[in-house]
């Protein structure tokens, strides 16, 4: 038992509890907080895997940016607890339990086969230098591809989330009315005939 084991167990337990918190809470804001806790404890686990850079990125990108966005949206839309009126998805709940067990069984199998190999990586594996070298040599094409992805995400989210400008609304209404009017006009003609 070393300190790293204690660290692992503590943060693994924290992560699991918080993950349950994510899925079992009714109030989205509690779920979000649960997820933030999971993310931060995973960051600590990354540290125990000698991946400090990834750990820092985990907190900066996930906890610092993505989850802020979530919390922001929850507050912006003021989503509170929602009582469900319909129960159409109830069968999914019954599906969930056996699925959970099946996946747990699978996990047991995996864990059993993997066993306890010695780590082959040096402690320098997760250093900024190593990662940067990989990023700008072998991974240069995927790296460039992510820029397309992000540009597209900016365009897409701006497109979907901005409010309709008055002129936009006008144009859409005109276009819809045009197709309706056409239909009505012919109807009248037929009645007249």
């Amino acid at each position: 038992m070393e300190i790293v084991h204690i660290l692992f167990l503590a943060f693994a337990a924290l992560a699991v509890v918080a993950a349950f918190n994510v899925i079992l809470q009714r109030n989205p804001i509690y779920s979000a907080i649960g997820l933030i806790v999971v993310l931060c404890s995973l960051a600590v686990l990354f540290l125990t895997l000698y991946a400090p850079f990834i750990a820092a990125m985990q907190v900066i990108v996930y906890a610092g940016a993505i989850m802020v966005l979530f919390v922001f949206v929850i507050m912006l839309l003021n989503i509170r607890e929602e009582e469900s009126k319909t129960d159409r998805q109830k069968y999914l709940k019954f599906l969930a339990a056996p699925l959970f067990l099946a996946l747990l069984g699978m996990i047991a199998a995996v864990v059993k086969t993997v066993g306890n190999p010695a780590p082959r990586g040096t402690d320098q594996l997760g250093s900024v230098q190593t990662l940067a070298e990989g990023m700008f040599t072998k991974y240069v094409l995927p790296f460039e591809a992510t820029s397309v992805l992000i540009l597209m995400a900016i365009v897409g989210s701006m497109l979907l989330a901005r409010r309709e400008k008055a002129e936009d609304v006008e144009r859409i209404e005109q276009a819809l009315a045009a197709s309706q009017e056409g239909a009505e006009a012919t109807e009248k003609e037929e009645v007249a005939a």
Binding site: A118, P119, G121, L125, G126, K138
Partner: peptide, 8 residues
């Protein structure tokens, strides 16, 4: 990544 010693 840690246990394979591979940065990928």
């Amino acid at each position: 990544s840690r246990f394979l010693g591979d940065v990928t």
